[in-house]
């Protein structure tokens, strides 16, 4: 066994990583909750967002945390347009087709980025990249602490949007009963696209939080998205609190299994949880019984 001196920082760091995972999973679960499909383009869109955050810093010198305020609306529009004009019309209302179209988009986005920027791994330099703060005897990276705060704020905003606005009400209505919502005059195609846009905007924020301490290359999104799938399945597909708690939990699991099993096998721990949950309780911890 390891001593608490190592264990406690590992858990805290796991929670900080988990916060960003949670934000990525939040976008995924939101889309699943309303459209009832898994967005296989989520990882590729995250990669695109990371590139966007990288280039706004490199080309214009804009701090990633500030860039989030511009990139989130931009990616909202991108997500909205993708669902409204590509995924929706292309899949003719068939769930299996939606899976295929999002998979196709993932292949397109990922490889277009590969073609444009090659496989190089890129990082940015900001002065606070390596700053740390001491919390109860363990040192935590400042950008990741900021990340945790930002994730909580985004989650709160999202919650408020879903609870307090008319659009939020419409989104929840479509999630619960699509036909009923349509009959009461809600434009389902518009709500689908709004939801997809919100999920994609979450990715833009996540990318801006990640880029100060992480790197970007055309395949980077895949690593995150498989973790995000696990979180969404664990927390219950479509459940927002499930995504948050699942994200934090998976962050800790990854940190601890990395500590005990080593970096590459640490990932297997996550997949085993994933497969186990899917087989034993596919509705997840917080989801309704499928």
């Amino acid at each position: 066994m390891l001593s608490p001196v190592i264990l406690i920082p590992a858990i805290l760091n796991g929670l900080l990583t988990g916060a960003v995972y949670a934000l990525i999973a939040l976008g995924l679960t939101l889309i699943y909750g309303v459209l009832h499909i898994i967005n296989f383009a989520h990882g590729a869109l995250l990669t695109a967002a990371l590139f966007a955050a990288y280039f706004t810093q490199k080309l214009f010198g804009i701090d990633p945390y500030l860039a989030a305020f511009a990139l989130a609306p931009l990616f909202f529009v991108l997500g909205y347009a993708l669902q409204r004009f590509v995924i929706g019309p292309a899949s003719h209302g068939d769930d299996r087709n939606m899976l295929l179209v999002t998979l196709g988009l993932a292949v397109i986005i990922e490889n277009a980025l590969l073609y444009a920027f090659h496989a190089d791994t890129r990082t940015i330099d900001v002065r606070y990249s390596f700053e740390t703060i001491a919390v109860g005897g363990s040192f935590l990276a400042l950008p990741r602490v900021i990340g945790l705060g930002a994730v909580l704020i985004v989650a709160l905003l999202l919650w408020a949007l879903l609870r307090l606005t008319d659009t939020g009400k419409a989104i929840r209505a479509v999630a619960k009963e699509k036909l009923g919502a349509e009959l009461s005059g809600i434009d389902v195609a518009h709500i689908y696209a709004m939801t997809f846009g919100l999920g994609t905007a979450c990715l833009a924020v996540a990318a801006c939080l990640l880029i100060p301490t992480y790197y970007v290359n055309p395949h980077v999104g895949n690593a995150f998205v498989l973790v995000a799938f696990t979180i969404v399945v664990l927390g219950g597909m479509g459940s927002v609190p499930g995504a948050l708690i699942g994200g934090l939990f998976i962050g800790v699991v990854e940190s601890l299994s990395g500590l005990y099993l080593g970096e590459s096998l640490g990932q297997i721990g996550i997949f085993l949880i994933f497969i186990l949950v899917l087989l034993v309780r596919p509705s997840g911890l917080f989801g309704e019984r499928a």
């Binding site: 899949s91 295929l100 179209v101 196709g104 988009l105 292949v107 397109i108 073609y115 444009a116």
Partner: peptide, 22 residues
């Protein structure tokens, strides 16, 4: 030999087939 473009075409073909030639 630039990697990526062939897969972009594969992805686009997939989306187009699903959309227009199910």
């Amino acid at each position: 030999d630039a990697p990526g473009l062939d897969l972009v075409i594969y992805g686009a073909a997939l989306v187009l087939v699903v959309a227009f030639a199910p």
